[in-house]
Design a protein around this nucleic acid. Structure first.
Length: 624
RNA sequence: GGCCCGGUGGUGUAGCGGCUAACACGCGGCCCUGUCAAGGCCGAGAUCGUGGGUUCGAAUCCCAUCCGGGUCGCCA
């Protein structure tokens, strides 16, 4: 990312167009070095700078201007005695005006060096200067400090993106993507573009639809991912494909979900799980080492079976930077007198908990906060047990703990509970009882919350892990049918095909996820490459022969023409860059022009109504 | 669709039944030759998201609604 000439003047040509405006001699380049690149080595050189006025400090006589460009900023000194004309220009300059300066790079006088600036050892004595374009007073300061309302930032995204924070994020994103391309190119992968206008397949997420002008009543869909296309490329014999692909899903937004997002889409032929996992581990490790060396991670990436992840963390994308593992105490709870426990266990639910280290002193108010936290996630309540400090747990009695359980359990049950939860004296046990799904959801997020409160997650650590051995199907109780856990193209383990119709819930899929710090960064699988097996899966999911041919004929037919065994993975670029960024709070911070939670683009005002003519041409009518 | 948080000069906040609506930054003017979030003095700028209601009186209480954010559902 170093410019063409760090250490010597770099020349930025403006397409060779002679620029002649407000005093600049015709044929002269507008700038011949970046503001942010000036160093001691440039002292004595005459330079031409152009950029934005970051700040102006007017001493009446001397005027200091911090001139900023994409590489950083440098202090320019305007001295009314040395160059009265330039000084007169500087008097007009205001924040965010665009200006050019011609002057000499000088070492700063003793005692005026600014160690906080990369260019802080030098300054530029302005000889000539001019205004390239004035600016209205911006709606918020580019110099940051205060956090600006995000809606305002979005409305003026072109100003928001001027901040060093956002430019860093965009540059980081560029570095990551460039690195991915180089890495995969070096390993024989071919980047292939796939269409944005494809066929709607109402599986998984809701499609964005595009009406056809030529075919009344017919619609294209924007791809939720290039899944089928990349499988067809495998049938086509590409063997190693990737794409930095834009994907679209018309579902509700989150901090880590936008309606359009970017995936590293990748597929290989003649591979098994291990080939993909090793490639991905090498790729992600390489990205972090080369692009963000400040961050640490452990290798090899641990493999975590899905069942273990759910049992120990209550989620399939745990933050592994800290422990605080969940303990299942359903069996202990079922023997207690405590009504909440009895009710939960007798109705087939679970009781699980986490021991919060050193939190026995939590106030009533703090416990109430945590209770509301789990209630907001569907739990009925939170049962706490405060274990006294400096007391052997093996001889603990119920009189010594602060807990709603105290009256309903025996000393022995209490000791077993503490021991099972790996608790230490001074810990606060946090327990949730109820249906397994609710318990896991509430506790996985409570665990994350406690990690945050206790500052357990090292911000400089990336805890990568592969989650493996996912069930192939999930039972949808509401709809009364099986659904694919990932998608219907995922293959079952070779020896489990016999189970498919007999016991679908027991079939383990050849699916894997890459998780990191509580985010799912990538997910993929070994695919089904035989028509017969693909049809069996589709049938199980409730598709008729005609239905599957109509929706998936293109893939099914292709599988009959020598489809090689293949598999791949898709990784979220937005999430990856967010995790790698020092400042990003959401993926909106690593997307140049993101949308709001209502899927609105506040800068352009999209979506918007269109004219009657446009609608008519598309054979559309708006009904309320 | 549900729940939670927020909306007060340009920006960020304070005010939570009675105020000429406060402070900082920014903005404008004047002074100022070594600052770097420059400094000093002066000044302009808000009918408190919108609409109803309660009250003698509403930024403040109630209801509705819009917008932004978080989250559950949804979505991998």
């Amino acid at each position: 990312m170093k410019g063409p000439g760090l250490g010597c003047p770099s020349v930025e040509r403006r397409g060779g167009v002679p620029y002649n405006r407000r005093g600049l001699p015709r044929g002269t380049l507008l700038k011949n070095i970046a503001c942010g690149e000036l160093r001691k080595g440039h002292v004595g050189q005459r330079v031409q700078l152009a950029g934005w006025v970051h700040r102006r400090r007017d001493h009446g006589g001397l005027i200091f201007i911090d001139l900023r460009d994409s590489r950083g900023l440098v202090q320019v000194v305007f001295n009314p005695e040395r160059s009265p004309e330039a000084h007169r220009v500087a008097q007009q300059l205001r924040a965010e005006w665009v200006a050019w300066v011609e002057g000499e790079v000088a070492e700063r006088p003793q005692g005026t060096v600014n160690p906080n600036l990369a260019t802080g050892e030098v300054e530029v004595y302005a000889g000539q200067a001019g205004v390239l374009n004035p600016s209205k007073t911006p709606p918020f300061e580019i110099g940051e400090e205060a956090e600006v309302d995000e809606a305002l930032r979005m409305q003026y995204r072109f100003l928001d993106l001027r901040t060093a924070r956002m430019q860093k994020n965009l540059i980081l994103r560029h570095r990551v993507v460039k690195h991915i391309r180089d890495f995969l190119d070096a390993r024989g992968f071919v980047e292939v573009e796939t269409p944005i206008l494809i066929k709607s397949t109402p599986e998984g997420a809701r499609d964005y639809l595009v009406p056809s002008r030529v075919h009344p009543g017919h619609f294209y869909a924007l791809p939720q991912s290039p899944q089928q296309l990349k499988q067809l490329l495998m049938v086509a014999g590409l063997e190693r494909y990737f794409q930095i692909a834009r994907c679209f899903r018309d579902e509700d937004l989150r901090a880590d979900r936008q309606p359009e997002f970017t995936q590293l889409d990748l597929e290989m032929s003649f591979v098994e799980e291990e080939d993909i996992l090793q490639l991905i581990e090498a790729l992600y490790a390489d990205i972090v080492e080369k692009v963000v060396p400040r961050l640490r991670f452990r290798q090899p990436f641990p493999r975590l079976p899905y069942q273990d992840a759910m049992a120990r963390y209550g989620t399939d994308k745990p933050d592994l930077r800290f422990g605080l593992e969940l303990a299942d105490v359903t069996d202990l709870a079922s023997t207690s007198e405590f009504q909440v426990f009895r009710a939960a266990t007798q109705s087939g639910g679970a009781v699980k908990g986490v021991a919060a280290p050193g939190c026995a002193g939590y106030s009533r108010r703090q416990i109430e906060e945590l209770t509301q936290f789990v209630q907001a996630r569907g739990a009925k309540g939170l049962i706490t047990v405060a274990l006294p400090e400096g007391r052997q747990l093996q001889t603990l009695t119920v009189e010594e703990v602060r807990s709603p359980l105290a009256r309903s359990v025996t000393d022995e049950q209490l000791r077993q509970l503490a021991s099972r939860m790996g608790a230490a004296p001074g810990d606060l046990l946090l327990l949730v009882a109820g249906p397994v799904g609710v318990v896991n959801l509430a506790l996985s997020q409570l665990r994350q919350e406690m990690g945050r409160r206790l500052d357990l997650a090292d911000p400089n650590l990336l805890a990568f892990a592969f989650v493996v051995d996912f069930p192939l199907f999930e039972w949808n109780a509401e709809e009364g049918r099986w659904e694919p856990m990932h998608h219907m193209f995922t293959s079952a383990r070779p020896h489990q095909w016999g189970l498919l119709e007999k016991d679908p819930g027991a079939v383990i899929g050849r699916h894997y996820d890459l998780v990191c710090n509580g985010y799912e960064l990538a997910g993929g699988s070994i695919r089904i490459h035989e028509r017969e097996k693909q049809e069996r899966v589709m049938r199980l999911l409730g598709h008729t022969q005609e239905g599957m041919q109509q929706k998936f004929g293109q893939l099914l037919d292709a599988l009959e023409y020598g489809a090689p065994p293949h598999g791949g993975i898709a990784g979220g670029i937005d999430r990856l860059v967010m995790v790698l960024s020092e400042s990003a709070q959401s993926i909106r911070d690593v997307i140049a022009f993101p949308k709001t939670q209502n899927a609105v683009d506040l800068l352009f005002g999209a979506p918007s109504p269109v004219t009657q003519e446009q609608l008519k041409e598309l054979h559309l009518q708006v009904v309320e």
